[in-house]
């Protein structure tokens, strides 16, 4: 019985980690109807920047080395400065994305915008490599790690402290995002754009400003998700692949719902862990990755818009 409880708890907490990534997708999709393929790379880029600053890595170090220029002049930046700098970098990135990518694609088909984000993902990944190198960067932001001792010692149940921290962070993040969208002027503008682009424009809301704000917030969420995943495995380029973990969460939870992303993550997390541990041994194992998609697709048969997604009815 304790093993089942352990599996469910681990699944729930792993699901929270997936939800953190999924949140970034939802924010951008809600405000601009763009499925941002680059969200995983945004997580990587944010975590790379934070870890590199904290390690004192000089940006473009290898390029400087090749050019025969000094490449060891960057000081180690303490976390309380490194985090704000990384947030500023992500805001700057949002400006650049709006200025050089999105601005020219207003009113284009969603598929064009989606393709643009694929390109963006590759550019950002290459830029991250060029700036900070491809080596694994340990990321220590003071988060607790290892098994939760009293659960382990008393009940022989293993729960990872890092994932509990992630659950707390995700809760705070969702509350903050909800308060922001409900009670601030910008938040209301975001909701207006999400509800109806044309109507929002007609009352003077600038779509470009909204896009910059949304991409900045998604960048911040990416920083949080990247930090959590980076603390787990070190920051490295495989981090961009965590987006694949968020996709079934989005299918299940809906592309436009923050609670959906959270609940979807929890269902996927528990579902895949139970499948791996109880069915996996009979069919060769390593089923959790694809089982998450099976679960999400099965759910689509019953509820195509996802758990909390908006039901779109178009009459022709």
């Amino acid at each position: 019985m304790s093993y089942l409880i352990e599996t469910i708890l681990s699944g729930l907490l792993a699901g929270v980690m997936y939800s953190l990534v999924a949140l970034g997708f939802v924010l951008i999709f809600k405000a601009s109807q763009i499925f941002n393929f680059a969200q995983g790379v945004l997580c990587l880029f944010a975590a790379l920047t934070l870890a590199s600053l904290m390690l004192g890595n000089t940006p473009f170090s290898e390029l400087l080395h090749t050019l025969g220029l000094p490449n060891d002049w960057m000081p180690v930046v303490p976390i309380w400065i490194a985090v704000p700098i990384t947030i500023l970098v992500m805001i700057g990135l949002a400006f650049v994305i709006e200025r050089f990518v999105l601005r020219y694609l207003v009113n284009q088909e969603p598929i064009i915008l989606f393709m643009a984000t694929i390109g963006l993902a590759y550019v950002l990944e290459g830029m991250g490599d060029l700036m900070w190198g491809s080596d694994v960067k340990p990321l220590s932001v003071g988060l607790p790690e290892g098994a939760l001792d009293w659960m382990f010692d008393r009940f022989d149940i293993y729960v990872d402290k890092l994932e509990i921290a992630a659950a707390v962070v995700a809760t705070v993040l969702v509350i903050a995002l909800s308060l922001f969208s409900q009670y601030t002027r910008i938040g209301r503008a975001l909701r207006a754009v999400a509800d109806d682009h044309q109507a929002a424009l007609s009352v003077g809301i600038s779509l470009r400003t909204i896009w910059i704000i949304v991409w900045s917030i998604a960048g911040f969420v990416a920083l949080v998700a990247g930090t959590m995943w980076g603390a787990k495995s070190g920051v490295q380029f495989s981090l961009s692949l965590i987006a694949l973990k968020a996709l079934p969460v989005l299918i299940l939870g809906g592309f436009t719902s923050i609670p959906g992303a959270i609940l979807g993550g929890l269902i996927i997390g528990v579902g895949e862990k139970l499948a791996e541990l109880y069915a996996g041994p009979y069919i060769g194992g390593a089923i959790e990755n694809w089982f998450a998609y099976v679960l999400a697709l099965a759910f689509l048969l019953v509820r195509p818009q996802g758990l909390f997604g908006e039901r779109i009815i178009e009459r022709v």
């Binding site: 093993y3 352990e6 990872d160 495989s238 041994p281 194992g285 390593a286």
Partner: peptide, 21 residues
């Protein structure tokens, strides 16, 4: 006991729960 981990191996919770069991 054989415990496969899919590429790239970023998430292995289930594998190590099996090791625990």
């Amino acid at each position: 006991m054989l415990l496969p981990v899919d590429h790239p191996g970023q998430e292995q919770k289930a594998t190590w729960l099996q090791v625990r069991r």
